[in-house]
């Protein structure tokens, strides 16, 4: 009994300390953002690493998710004779929810884990210490450019995901199941609002990008500097970043669409 209490205490102390370090880490990232904007070269390289290299998985997943939406949506709507509204269903689901959330989850798995492994390895091989010893702060040079690239890349990837998804829904709904092409596109265009839907979706994915990359960079920076420690940190990144994305999604959805109902 006492032992369990002791373990609980030690566990929560540890968790509190980690939260504190993560907060400090975020603060230092924020403070160094301007410095990394002034050196766009590093950000561009990271945009390639995080964004372009995640593009394939985003394209393929987006297409399939759109196709599934088309199929499921059609089967439901056709019972009510409303298969013409397929465009609305596919468009709104993707732009509001599935686009930002799914691409953020994929991003956490593809780019987040790679970020953690990269930073963790830099720590394990003393490259971060070497920078510190050369009087070079790793925050503006190494960490902040990656963070910034993360939340530039994320909304772009989400938009690509939604666009490909809408195309997938079109392929299945219109080409395969015979929904009228005109009503698919018209319904899509009239129901998806630029501010309410598109912009909110983009805002969501900027937040998701920031959360995923913050978690990934922190886990790498805070890891136990051994091969095993880096491996564990990578796993933790995927789990925590995914949970973070879903948590923030609920929060943001409640704020954005709460009153609409």
């Amino acid at each position: 009994m006492i032992e369990a209490l002791v373990r609980l205490g030690a566990g929560s102390l540890g968790a509190t300390a980690t939260t504190g370090r993560a907060g400090m880490f975020l603060w230092r990232l924020l403070a160094q953002l301007p410095a990394s904007v002034r050196r766009p070269g590093g950000v561009v390289r990271q945009l390639y690493n995080l964004g372009v290299l995640s593009l394939i998985i985003i394209l393929v997943s987006g297409l399939f998710v759109g196709m599934v939406l088309g199929l499921q949506g059609y089967n439901t709507l056709v019972d009510f004779g409303a298969e013409g509204s397929l465009g609305t269903l596919v468009g709104l689901s993707l732009v509001r929810e599935l686009g930002p959330v799914m691409s953020a989850l994929l991003f956490a798995g593809r780019a987040g884990s790679a970020l953690t492994a990269e930073i963790g390895l830099m720590k394990a091989t003393e490259q971060l210490s070497a920078l510190e010893m050369m009087a070079v702060d790793p925050f503006p040079r190494v960490l902040a450019p990656r963070w910034l690239a993360g939340f530039i890349a994320m909304p772009l990837l989400a938009v690509v995901f939604s666009a490909v998804g809408i195309l997938g829904g079109y392929l299945v709904g219109v080409e395969l199941l015979g929904v009228d092409a005109g009503s698919y596109w018209t319904n899509l265009r009239t129901s998806v609002d630029f501010y309410d839907d598109l912009l909110n979706g983009v805002i969501k994915s900027v937040v998701f990008g920031a959360v995923v990359c913050w978690v990934a960079l922190f886990q790498g920076y805070d890891c136990v500097p051994t091969a095993e420690g880096v491996g564990r940190a990578t796993t933790r990144t995927v789990v925590m970043a995914s949970l973070g994305v879903l948590g923030f999604d609920f929060l943001l959805t409640a704020l954005m669409y709460g009153e609409v109902g």
């Binding site: 390895l121 830099m122 091989t125 003393e126 490259q127 210490s129 070497a130 920078l131 010893m133």
Partner: peptide
């Protein structure tokens, strides 16, 4: 400082 492992930027 010369690090034991070298610690070059990879």
């Amino acid at each position: 400082m010369l690090f034991q492992s070298g610690a070059l930027l990879t």
